[in-house]
Structures are given as structure tokens and as C-alpha cells.
């Protein structure tokens, strides 16, 4: 089963994501900022990364950029959690190498549906 790295500085958001994904049968590893996520990603291969954009220490855009630069994450789907549906952030994420995005607030079904778009 696929293993997903969920990155968000809000504990409740992480919990919600983790709860939903585990419920759907995914393995989930949490990280509370970009830096922590980057460390964890280097230690273990994830099939999908879901990351918030605005976080302390290292933001989501930077995280995606750093991950894409790694050989192991060249083809890994990465989704951004963004509050804005505006194209600005999406373009920024796209340029950094994000695969797609999920606009907050979202419900568990939307989250799972979006994941299924990019993950077998």
C-alpha cells in the first residue's frame, strides 16, 4: 500500500488528513514543517507528498522544489494544500514542481478523490 507524507504546521489539519488517509488504507507519516518533511523524505521513499504551503522554518513551495531536485522524488506526485483558489499560488507551486493542489477547506471525500487522480 502506498505511503504518504503529510506535511502541515497545524496539528488538527495533520490529524484530519492522517485519519482520512489511514481510513482509506494508506500508510501515513506526518511532518510539521518543510524542514522536518525533507529529512523524513530522505530517510524513506514516499509514494505521495501532501504539503501545506505556509509553514514555519521551510514553506511548502521550497519543500517541493527541494524534493523535486532529489533523484528519488523526480516522479513522485506532490499535492499542495492551499487556501487560495487563485491561480497565483497554483502557478507558483507548478513552477516549483507540484503535481496538483487541493483547495482548503476540503472534506475527506475531496481529499481522497484528488489523491486518486494522481496515485494509482
Amino acid at each position: 500500500m502506498a505511503t504518504i507524507l503529510a506535511v502541515d504546521d497545524s496539528a488538527s489539519m495533520r490529524q484530519m488528513v492522517t485519519f482520512t488517509l489511514k481510513g482509506a488504507g494508506y500508510e501515513v507519516v506526518e511532518a510539521s514543517d518543510g524542514q522536518e518533511a525533507l529529512e523524513k523524505a530522505k530517510g524513506q521513499q514516499f509514494n505521495l507528498v501532501i504539503s501545506d504551503v505556509n509553514m514555519p522554518v521551510m514553506d511548502g513551495i521550497t519543500l517541493i522544489k527541494e524534493l523535486r531536485a532529489l533523484e528519488e522524488y523526480k516522479f513522485t506526485p506532490m499535492l499542495m494544500l492551499t487556501t487560495e483558489s487563485g491561480d497565483d499560488k497554483k502557478t507558483q507551486g507548478k513552477t516549483a514542481g507540484a503535481t496538483g493542489w487541493i483547495v482548503k477547506p476540503f472534506n475527506p471525500d475531496q481529499l481522497l478523490a484528488t489523491i486518486k487522480k494522481v496515485l494509482d
Binding site: R68, K74, F75, P77, M78, K94, T99, K116, V118, L119
Partner: peptide
């Protein structure tokens, strides 16, 4: 297309849903 983590097959699978 593959380089940003997009998998052509996964979209088709999703479509099948």
C-alpha cells in the same frame, strides 16, 4: 509530463471511476 509527478495512467484510472 512525468517530471512533475504526473502519471498519465493515473488520470485514466480516475476517469474510469
Amino acid at each position: 509530463v512525468l517530471q512533475n509527478g504526473m502519471d498519465p495512467i493515473s488520470f485514466l484510472r480516475y476517469l474510469d471511476r
